[in-house]
Design a protein around this nucleic acid. Structure first.
Lengths: 144, 144
DNA sequence: GGTGAAAGCTAGCCGGC
DNA sequence: GCCGGCTAGCTTTCACC
């Protein structure tokens, strides 16, 4: 992981579909060694994969909500069931367990307010162990 | 945006570096028409770009914190200054303005607890208008 | 949506530093 | 051990049906 590797990573984070020839010329290397570095970064797990970035509007997911969840119980079976069920939901874009309060942080992406009401009522409130819910609606996306 | 377009988007979200030949065969099309669809999706803005997914550990960014911010003032100049300065910080991975409380939601990725203390003190607390700060540390990443 | 041909890229191999 | 040049084979991409 020298400065060339970091340059490669920076370019591929910016545009993951750049050709190897173009990438090589940008970091100041010829295509052969450049490709070898990329392959080594992929094999070692530094580069985990490549994803297309899709406009949320086009997929009916432009309404973002930050949902904070506290469980009513911290029994192992309740915790494991909650984590498994919530992680499996398509509307859940991001899902973290936190230290302290709240117990969980969930980022949800749906089409509109009505979809969110339905999601919360039918998908979240029906999960065993759910205690307190607190929804925070995104006004504006400033980064990420 | 028919079912073939949706299939293309699903495949490219899963692997954004798949070859056009492979993509065409997966969605049941020949390479020519498949490429035309991809190009149309890119030109229309449905596909915004492609990104390499990099292991946060390799970049010294495996310590994630959810930071909630309330401003002391909602003056236009204070709000605009705060948003501009925070969005420009490398450690800030995600940044949203919310309705209600808190005013802002910030996701931060740094190397460790010491880096976070330094980030909060030197980069956030120095910004004009910052009122209440509340940090929530991620224990476990369950999705996203 | 499919076909075919030209241009460009990938990925292996070998020599040099 | 890593870079650079070369070549064979494949992919991308375009005009045309």
């Amino acid at each position: 992981m020298d400065s060339l590797d970091h340059a490669i990573i920076a370019e591929l984070e910016r545009d993951g579909r750049i050709s190897n020839v173009e990438l090589a010329s940008r970091i100041g290397l010829t295509p052969g060694p450049c490709l070898r570095r990329v392959q080594r970064l992929e094999a070692s797990g530094v580069i985990r994969g490549y994803r297309a970035v899709v406009d949320p509007e086009a997929l009916g997911r432009s309404f973002e909500v930050i949902l904070q969840v506290d469980l009513a119980s911290q029994e192992t079976s309740v915790v494991e069931g909650f984590e498994r069920e919530v992680a499996a939901l398509d509307e859940v874009v991001e899902f973290k367990r936190l230290f302290g309060t709240p117990d969980y942080f969930v980022r949800v992406a749906v089409a509109d307010l009505a979809s969110y009401e339905s999601f919360l009522t039918r998908r979240i409130m029906s999960v065993r162990g759910v205690g307190k819910l607190s929804s925070h609606f995104a006004m504006k996306n400033l980064k990420g």
